[in-house]
Nucleic acid binder design. Structure first.
Lengths: 212, 212
DNA sequence: GTGAAATTCGGACGCTGGTTCAACTTTTCA
DNA sequence: TGAAAAGTTGAACCAGCGTCCGAATTTCAC
């Protein structure tokens, strides 16, 4: 096994352990156990426990920002863009579950303090992109012009991030179904679907595939 | 100062510290510093650090369950009950911010393991009460009958819990305004308010006080 | 096969942090 | 006012954990 591959193994193991126990509660020994190594051996690959965490943090957030930019660049209707952004968020969330588990639970600001990583900046960028989606909808007259965009954005993202607490890949709902329901919920609220559909000016085209 | 009062001080200080740093990252010394005491002195009041955490956990959750039961017992319309439950959740959330900060971030299952506290049970009860609210709405024909109740419940609670990440008492939005927007969002989604109002069968009476 | 390089081992070191405790100070109340 | 009770101190103990390092083992080129 190459050095790179071994390093990747270690980082993945660390991600799992950090998510399960939390960064501070997790011991280097736990990471070693996960790999069947002795803890001293890890230091052949890493320098400190903090660097291990830092290594995990880079990547997932950047990918989400990039994916959001792509969606924004399309010519879809606002409601559809929103649906796709929600889906995208949930999908990345699930794919980098370990990372987000850490990201949501730990206070990672101390990482920004003494290194080149700028997590907070990335989050700000991501938020701004969401706001753009909502603003487009308002400008197009299909979203409530009276809404407070930051609150609504936080409401939707909070809704998505909440999946961390309860979503299980082997649970009753596949991630697509959750995305579908979340999008429908965001766009139409709880009002009976028929009435909502009748009144809605911008139906989502994503619900056609699975009508559950 | 009475013993009870001193104990309360200690638990409150611990709550603040645990929320700021996380239970595992926080040190007993930090709690002592918060009070201007020496760490040894704390042990005149507490037995272990874990008990300190356990003491914090009891209470807030029980109060929320009780408050939800009260709302359910009223004769309000489903949409109004939902609005009130959302408000209630956010209000308790803010009032016991330290507790929830810990609750959401830490893995507290280990507390259930070897003590009489049954956090998980409480959470299950709380979820069930929310589901009742939603079911009532469906039965009354004012909520979408096709929704997956558990998903929607989790969506709304997730939305509320997300406030932990961003809500600041001195920020631009008072908690009431957030509750109002969340409820409106849940009930009508993002569709323009006028169209939503026209079609809605159960307007919320809570928005009358502040129209932002 | 042999030697060097890469990798892993296993123990040691030092620090941190939870907990204990005997001594000291303050409060209480007869 | 004085003695007992309540509360606080500060040092010490000890276990756990991050980190280091020389020795042992494995890998691999020649």
């Amino acid at each position: 096994m190459s050095r790179k591959a071994r390093e990747a193994e270690i980082y993945e193991a660390a991600a799992r352990v950090f998510r399960r126990k939390g960064y501070h509660a997790a011991r280097i020994q736990d990471v070693a156990d996960e790999l069947g190594l002795h803890k001293g051996s890890l230091y052949y690959y890493i320098s400190t426990k903090e660097d291990l965490l830092r290594g995990l943090v880079e990547g997932p957030m950047q990918r989400m920002v990039a994916a959001t930019r792509e969606i924004l660049a399309t010519r879809h209707a606002p409601a559809q863009k929103l649906t796709r952004v929600i889906e995208m968020h949930l999908r990345h969330f699930q794919e980098s579950k370990d990372f987000f588990g850490i990201f949501l639970r730990e206070d990672l600001d101390f990482l920004d303090a003494n290194a080149e990583t700028d997590l907070r900046g990335l989050v700000r960028t991501y938020d701004a992109l969401w706001d753009e989606v909502l603003q487009e909808g308002i400008a197009a007259g299909v979203f409530d012009a009276e809404m407070e965009v930051p609150i609504v954005r936080k409401a939707i993202i909070g809704m998505c991030n909440g999946t961390y607490t309860w979503f299980r890949a082997d649970g009753p709902y596949p991630i697509q179904e959750i995305a579908r329901q979340f999008a429908a919920f965001a766009l139409d609220g709880l009002r009976p679907r028929d009435a909502a559909r009748a009144a809605a000016t911008t139906p989502s085209d994503l619900s056609s595939s699975s009508t559950a």
